[in-house]
Computed example of a mutant assay.
Amino acid sequence: MERFVGRRALVTGAGKGIGRAVAVALSRAGAHVVALSRTQADLDGLQKECPGIQTLCVDVGDWEATEAALNKVDDIDLLVNNAGIALLQPFLEVTKDAFDRSFSVNLRAALQISQIVARKLIARGAPGAIVNVSSQASQRAVLDHTVYCSTKSALDMLTKTMAQELGPHKIRVNSVNPTVVLTEMGRRNWSDPQKAAAMTSRIPLGRFAEVADVVNSILFLLSDQSNMTTGVVLPVDGGFLVS
């Protein structure tokens, strides 16, 4: 069903995993997609899969480069802030570089890119939808994830404050908060059966999320089917956060 015909969408972190799948799904649903990644080879592969997708290679952790790149992009109606990194360190070993890099990519980039997109939407009096990709780790402490958990908690609050201030302009803002997702990286990081069992035992549905589970939630929040939904932090976690 081509429910995004005539819409222009920007997806960050679109080279791999969830971001790539969202970009492909939006394109197949009729949107004109701008896929942003810091890795040109990933973007080249994406464009071969979906030739209609426009690609943009930039490191969103670089404020000036991101602003310059997005100034060349036409108006955007839908934004998915998916770019993120996980630099895992025990609390007592957290470094300044890991802290600064994590917050610049996981939080500051979402703020900056949303500002750019929202300002253009407001200037032309158009409605819009923004989805921030957060994590269940925003609400549960995880060993060695001090900085990652902190960035995602901050991203959830950014979602809520954006929803409050942008709502009068008919711009909806929500986040999705997945459990472990079985991307290529997710499968690799959770390949140890004992480690995986310790986590899935805390998930009422008894499994990790497939990429499609997260993509479907993102597309719902971008679509007109959720046009009375804003400021929501939506768990896609099989019930992990209720236990």
Rank of each mutant, 00 (worst) to 15 (best):
Arg3Lys: 14
Arg3Leu: 01
Phe4His: 10
Phe4Asp: 06
Gly6Glu: 09
Arg7Asn: 02
Ala14Leu: 06
Ala14Phe: 03
Lys16Tyr: 05
Gly17Cys: 13
Gly17Met: 06
Ala21Trp: 14
Ala23Phe: 03
Ser27Asp: 09
Ser27Phe: 02
Arg28Cys: 12
Val33Gly: 05
Leu36Gln: 09
Asp42Ile: 02
Gly45Val: 11
Pro51Ser: 01
Ile53Tyr: 11
Asp62Ala: 04
Glu67Leu: 09
Ile76Met: 06
Ala83Gly: 04
Gly84Lys: 13
Leu88His: 11
Leu92Asp: 15
Glu93Phe: 03
Thr95Phe: 00
Ala98Asn: 14
Ser104Glu: 15
Asn106Asp: 05
Leu107Cys: 08
Ala109Tyr: 07
Gln112Met: 08
Gln112Ile: 10
Gln112Ser: 08
Gln115Leu: 09
Ile116Arg: 05
Arg119Cys: 09
Ile122Pro: 05
Ala129Leu: 08
Asn132Trp: 14
Asp144Trp: 12
Val147Pro: 03
Cys149Glu: 08
Leu155Val: 06
Met162Gly: 10
Gln164Cys: 13
Gly167Gln: 07
Gly167Lys: 11
His169Arg: 15
His169Asp: 11
Lys170Tyr: 14
Asn174Lys: 04
Val176Asp: 03
Thr183Pro: 04
Ala209Arg: 00
Glu210Gly: 05
Ser217Leu: 02
Leu221Ala: 14
Asp224Gly: 13
Val232His: 08
Val236Ser: 02
Gly238Phe: 00
Gly239Asn: 05
Leu241Ile: 13
